[in-house]
Structures are given as structure tokens and as C-alpha cells.
């Protein structure tokens, strides 16, 4: 059991090191620029709007770059190993195919965690700088004014603190990571039977988009009634059974919009993600075990 875990860890570490050597983290530079620019671009808007834009664009950039890393990175994992024939050397050793696949996936999760962590640090840095600048502006404007204006400035400062140090952003970042983990899992599953990385990227992205419409398909399947014909019902049912509902991660937008999202709900979504990933990995292992290399 422990030996198996050691082998998985070794493969994961190797996958992470390889990805880092490909200078994947250069994308962070781009992220930093987007976060900083979006932070200072909308100075003419109200306080709430400015923070919303900053959070939306930063978390959005995290999602986009994370999606790119998850898609491109995972899609290349197996084809590269097969093309370079390194997979034969690894599997010739006492390493099971399942351990190889889990190791690869864990490596990708570690890469995503690293990039998300670094992007989050940049994000927090930008938001705290914005907070400092806005507070300074409020204090400057309130200088030498009457008590009423100063009370208003104090209220605004409280609001700035509330917006900038919103602990709910942790929920948003966790959910973004969960969404990316699902994308990486889907890409790995597809790459176990795909013949090229391009196929994997295209199919995974398609499943990702369909995932955002899964709730519509499910609703039509469950409540469509006689309006939906039999063939369409079968199709919608299969879709609802197989494709993950990516809309459940839209709660990120609610968090940024200022809604109170209970932790119980976040944990429910994270549990769904966890179980879904377990199923994805099980199916991927079953297919990969049968694949002729």
C-alpha cells in the first residue's frame, strides 16, 4: 500500500517538475498584468463596482489561465510519454498502470495548485494595494471638512475594508480550483483513449461547454414531458448521466457579487467534485488498463 503511494508520489513529482521546466508559470506574468491593470482601470466607478470588476477580472483570469494549463498540460501527459517512449521504461518497472495514471493526475493537480496559489498571492497583493490607495484618497478628501463629511469618509473606509478583506474570496478560489481539477480529470480520461493531444483538448473543451448547459438538458429530461420526443429524451438522459454540471461552480460569481454563500453549500459542491473525480479516475484506469500501448 505505502509502496504504491511512494510510486504515485514519485510520478507526480516528476510530472510537476517537467511542467515547471516548460515555463508554464510564465503565464503568471500575464495574469499579474491583467490583475493590476483591471485593478486600476475603472477608477471612475463607485467603490462597490471597482472592487467587483477587480475581483471578477482577477478570478476570471485565474480561471482562464488555469483552464489553459489544465487542458494543454493534461492533454499532453499521455501522448508525450507514448511518443517519447518513456512510458515503456516506466511500466517495465513494478509500476501499475493505475499508479502511473494517478501519479500523472496528482502531478497536474499539484501544478494547478502551485499556479493558483501564486496567482492568489498576486491577486491579494493587488487588492490590498487598491485598498490602501482608496483609503488614502478618502482621507485626503475628508481633510479639513466638517464632521458629517468625515463620518461619511469613515463609513466609506469601513466599506473599502469589507470589500478588500472579504474572507469569502477563499471560497471562490477553492471552487475555481475544483472546477479546474474537473477539467484536468476530464482531459486525462479522454486522453486514455484519444489518439492525439488536439483531439483531447477539443473534446474536453466541448464537454466543458456542454457542462454549462447540462442543467438545461437535465431539466428538459426530467420535466420535458411530451414536448421532448423519445430519442431526444434518451440523448438528454445520457448527457445528464455522463457530463458534469459545470454551472454548480457559478456560485463563484455570487460570492464576488457579495452574496453570502454558506460554507455548507461550498463543501457540498467540493464533495460532488471529489466523488466525480474518483469516478473519472476509476473509468480512466479501466480504459487505460485495456489500452494497447
Amino acid at each position: 500500500m505505502f509502496e504504491s503511494l511512494f510510486r504515485i508520489r514519485a510520478i507526480a513529482r516528476n510530472t510537476l517538475t517537467e511542467a515547471l521546466r516548460q515555463k508554464v508559470l510564465n503565464i503568471l506574468l500575464l495574469f499579474g498584468v491583467i490583475a493590476i491593470v483591471s485593478g486600476f482601470l475603472f477608477a471612475n466607478f463607485t467603490l462597490a463596482e471597482q472592487f467587483k470588476f477587480l475581483k471578477d477580472f482577477s478570478i476570471g483570469a485565474m480561471s482562464v489561465f488555469g483552464l489553459l494549463i489544465a487542458l494543454m498540460g493534461t492533454a499532453q501527459l499521455l501522448p508525450n510519454e507514448i511518443e517519447n517512449r518513456t512510458i515503456y521504461t516506466i511500466l517495465a518497472k513494478p509500476v501499475r498502470r493505475s499508479e502511473f495514471l494517478i501519479g500523472k493526475y496528482c502531478g497536474m493537480l499539484a501544478l494547478l495548485a502551485t499556479t493558483m496559489l501564486l496567482m492568489s498571492i498576486v491577486f491579494v497583493g493587488v487588492i490590498l494595494t487598491k485598498e490602501r490607495l482608496m483609503i488614502n484618497a478618502e482621507l485626503r478628501d475628508a481633510q479639513g471638512t466638517n464632521a458629517e463629511m468625515q463620518a461619511m469618509a469613515n463609513e466609506n473606509i469601513k466599506q473599502i475594508h469589507k470589500e478588500a478583506r472579504d474572507p469569502r474570496l477563499i471560497q471562490a478560489i477553492l471552487l475555481t480550483y475544483a472546477k479546474l481539477a474537473v477539467v484536468a480529470g476530464l482531459a486525462l480520461l479522454i486522453s486514455t483513449f484519444a489518439t492525439s493531444a488536439i483531439f483531447t483538448v477539443a473534446t474536453t473543451f466541448m464537454v466543458y461547454i456542454i457542462g454549462h448547459l447540462e442543467s438545461v438538458a437535465r431539466a428538459a429530461w426530467l420535466t420535458g414531458g411530451s414536448e421532448v420526443n423519445f430519442a431526444a429524451k434518451i440523448f438528454l438522459g445520457v448527457l445528464s448521466f455522463l457530463v458534469p454540471d459545470m454551472n454548480i461552480y457559478n456560485v463563484i460569481d455570487e460570492i464576488i457579487a457579495g452574496s453570502a454563500v454558506p460554507w455548507s453549500h461550498t463543501l457540498n459542491v467540493l464533495s460532488y467534485t471529489g466523488i466525480f473525480l474518483l469516478i473519472l479516475m476509476s473509468v480512466a484506469i479501466l480504459i487505460f488498463n485495456e489500452r494497447e500501448l
Partner: peptide, 13 residues
């Protein structure tokens, strides 16, 4: 999984 998944998603919704 499909059965569990659909019920779970309905609950989340």
C-alpha cells in the same frame, strides 16, 4: 454514479 449524480445536482440546484 449517473443516478447519484442527477439527484445530487438536483439537490444543489
Amino acid at each position: 454514479w449517473g443516478t447519484l449524480k442527477v439527484c445530487w445536482e438536483q439537490g444543489i440546484e
